[in-house]
């Protein structure tokens, strides 16, 4: 496939708006082919096939007959308490992490945008969690939450609050909040960097004009900064929400869905269905439901933001 890379001599020399001959177009397609072919074979096709599998009774194992079952998987999902439970947890997780991530990142970005000392340290530190593999972030926080050797419990001991010591990831009440906090820690850096870039694009003159007019800091934030960075906010929160809803590795390492399914995100649930129980069709149906829900929620969110903008 890559031999095509050595034939750029067939590419045309004309500009984008000039009418192209047929051979020119062939050249362009030859350049694009090595990239497009793998994407079609191993990304587009599997995706379509995955969507289709959601309407079948596919199961693990060689030489298993697959038959089309229509909406049977979805009827089963409707009556599956475990699915509803996982779905509820997934929403709590995705919304919780996204909102907290955004608020904390906005605060940090505003601080980093000022002339403060230690700003350099904070900038570097705020990127490190982003650089860590999700599995390592999971391990790191497992060490922090460890019931005996953990940083958090030791902290509560040192401040004479031994009553607050608990098995954070093993307790039914604390497991989900504890996991959400990790999600925030892991995702905050990227959101901060994006928001900071947005803040740096706000024209100085606007602030100066507002300051001359006697606007307070809060008013300037509310009426100058916020409107200016709204497009950035909408873009990054939408992406964060998608990434969070589809996240897997972090929680897999932290709790593997436990205790008692309290942190069983939809992705973990689908993984178990597919690769522990071999219910490929059912797991794919679950994936389809996840896509529909993400798209629906995003549509509502984006429409409301758009209406606010007008």
């Amino acid at each position: 496939m890559t031999t095509l890379a050595e034939r750029p001599d067939v590419a045309p020399t004309d500009g984008p708006r000039v009418a192209r001959s047929r051979s020119d177009r062939m050249g362009i397609y030859l350049l694009l082919l090595p990239s497009l072919l793998p994407i079609v074979v191993l990304s587009v096709f599997p995706l379509l096939r995955g969507i289709y599998l959601g309407f079948t009774d596919a199961r693990a194992g060689r030489h298993v007959e697959i038959s089309f079952t229509g909406l049977a998987n979805y009827r089963e999902l409707l009556g599956d308490d475990l699915f509803w439970n996982s779905f509820k947890i997934g929403l709590l997780w995705a919304v919780g992490v996204t909102v907290l991530q955004f608020l904390l990142a906005l605060g940090l970005a505003l601080l980093l945008n000022q002339q403060l000392r230690f700003r350099g340290v904070a900038r570097v530190l705020s990127v490190v969690p982003w650089a860590m593999p999700p599995v390592v972030v999971g391990i790191l926080w497992k060490l922090v939450y460890h019931p005996d050797a953990g940083l958090l419990n030791e902290f509560f001991h040192r401040i004479d609050a031994d009553g607050l010591r608990t098995n954070w990831l093993g307790d039914f009440n604390t497991a989900l909040p504890a996991v959400i906090l990790v999600g925030v820690w892991a995702g905050m850096p990227q959101t901060t960097v994006v928001l900071l870039a947005g803040l740096q694009g706000v024209p100085r003159e606007l602030h100066e004009a507002a300051a001359v007019d006697g606007a307070s800091t809060w008013h300037r934030f509310r009426n100058v900064t916020l409107p200016a960075i709204t497009p950035v906010i909408v873009a990054i929160t939408s992406l964060d929400f998608i990434w969070n809803f589809n996240s897997f590795g972090l929680v897999y390492v932290l709790t593997a869905g436990g205790p008692g399914g309290k942190t069983m995100l939809p992705m973990l649930f689908a993984y178990e269905e597919a690769f522990r129980y071999g219910n490929y069709g059912y797991a794919a149906a679950l994936g389809n439901v996840m896509v529909v829900i993400i798209v629906a929620l995003l549509a509502v969110y984006l429409r409301r933001r758009l209406r606010e903008a007008n």
């Binding site: 590419a11 045309p12 984008p16 708006r17 192209r20 177009r25 362009i28 397609y29 694009l32 990239s35 497009l36 994407i39 990304s43 587009v44 096709f45 599997p46 995706l47 096939r49 995955g50 969507i51 599998l53 959601g54 596919a58 992406l239 998608i242 990434w243 809803f245 589809n246 897997f248 939809p266 992705m267 689908a270 993984y271 597919a274 490929y280 797991a283 794919a284 679950l286 994936g287 389809n288 996840m290 896509v291 993400i294 798209v295």
Partner: peptide
């Protein structure tokens, strides 16, 4: 260097593919 419809489609796929959970991809 060249404006092609294929290019637009490819870049659109970048965004669209973000939406889909890996479960859908991994089995096929």
């Amino acid at each position: 260097r060249f404006r092609t419809r294929l290019g637009t489609i490819a870049l659109g796929w970048v965004l669209l593919s973000q939406l889909f959970p890996f479960v859908l991809l991994i089995i096929p």
